[in-house]
């Protein structure tokens, strides 16, 4: 397994433009084997373009990529043998059954007919498509197509997995199953890059995050800064009036109250801890106290803000 240490995904200074539109500029990231990295960024930030380059479909204008130790431009066949890609566009051969689609995909990876059939059965079980296995794929719902697309990406047991919006269209149970599957594959040594907009979900399954904004990956310092910037904390109290009074007494202004509790802006985690101590000290009965948004979402929102207002409160 030592030979795999240099594998996974590495992206160094990659850029790509379409005509005058610079979709990705100077993107740099690394996903080591056995880990899950979230790729987040606003719409049009270049996530799909970056994934297409990783999937050996699009050549970068500059920079270098390795997937499983191979360069997708110089040696696409080796990369394709090692990489599974789940696109954001749900394409399936409409008149073929789920089983036939997976079998043909297996054979496209040079599996024998028998091996492809066995693997198709495994994946049908893995993605919970048993009852639909022999139906043509055009009757599948969006979420079911999404599962078929995931199964297809896993046909050849890839060591690198690229998932573009894998959770969209899935019901809550399927999302949990997807999360568990992704964690298990990572546990078995797969390098996984997931792009998604469901940030709370990525929070639960990703080991690391890469922020892509205007085609550029945010540097580690900027991410750290954004993560440390002022954020909203949600406080719920059994006695809202006392809470409001105590907050005013602590010098907190601009707090707003909704049906879930009171939102306050606090500069840092330390300041939040101090505030909680003061509230408890002044006899407010606090039932919940926590960040209003997840870590990823907070960082994402801060990085997506225009440069001038970014981290203004910190």
């Amino acid at each position: 397994m030592d030979s795999r240490a240099a594998q996974g995904i590495t992206v160094t200074g990659v850029s790509r433009s379409f005509g005058s539109v610079q979709a990705v500029r100077d993107a740099t990231l690394a996903v080591p084997p056995g880990s899950v990295t979230a790729l987040v960024g606003p719409n049009g930030a270049g996530k799909t373009t970056l994934l297409l380059m990783l999937a050996s479909l699009l050549a970068p204008d500059s920079g270098s990529i390795t997937i499983g130790g191979h360069d997708p431009v110089a040696d696409p066949q080796k990369v394709r043998a090692a990489m599974g890609w789940m696109p954001d566009v749900l394409g399936s051969w409409p008149s073929l059954s789920v089983r036939a689609s997976l079998e043909i995909t297996g054979q496209m990876y040079k599996m024998s007919r028998l091996a492809a059939t066995t693997r198709a059965n495994e994946l049908i079980g893995l993605t919970g498509l048993e009852t639909l296995a022999d139906r043509p794929s055009r009757v599948l719902s969006r979420g079911q197509k999404q599962r078929l697309s995931l199964a297809r990406a896993l046909v050849h047991s890839p060591s690198v997995l690229l998932l573009d919006e894998p959770a969209s269209g899935l019901d809550p149970a399927a999302r949990v199953a997807l999360r568990e599957l992704i964690r298990r594959l990572a546990g078995e040594g797969t390098a996984i890059l997931v792009s998604s907009h469901v940030l709370s979900e990525l929070d639960e399954m990703a080991d690391a995050a890469v922020y892509l904004a205007d085609g550029t990956t945010a540097s580690a310092e900027r991410v750290a800064l954004a993560g440390a910037s002022a954020r909203s904390w949600r406080i719920r109290s059994l006695d809202p009036d006392t809470l409001a009074g105590a907050l005013l007494a602590s010098g907190i202004v601009g707090s707003e109250t909704d049906h879930l509790g009171t939102l306050v802006h606090v500069d840092s985690e330390a300041a939040a801890a101090d505030l909680l101590a003061r509230l408890i000290g002044s006899g407010v009965r606090v039932s919940a106290f926590g960040p209003a948004v997840g870590d990823l979402e907070h960082t994402f929102l801060d990085l997506s803000r225009p440069e001038s207002t970014r981290g203004a409160a910190s």
């Binding site: 040079k110 024998s112 047991s157 890839p158």
Partner: peptide, 22 residues
């Protein structure tokens, strides 16, 4: 489904691939 990672890509041929994949 414990065998999803039984193959690794790269120099070593995948065990469940057809022999002619060499």
């Amino acid at each position: 489904m414990s065998d999803t990672r039984e193959t690794t890509a790269g120099s070593e041929p995948a065990p469940n691939a057809a022999p002619n994949a060499a």
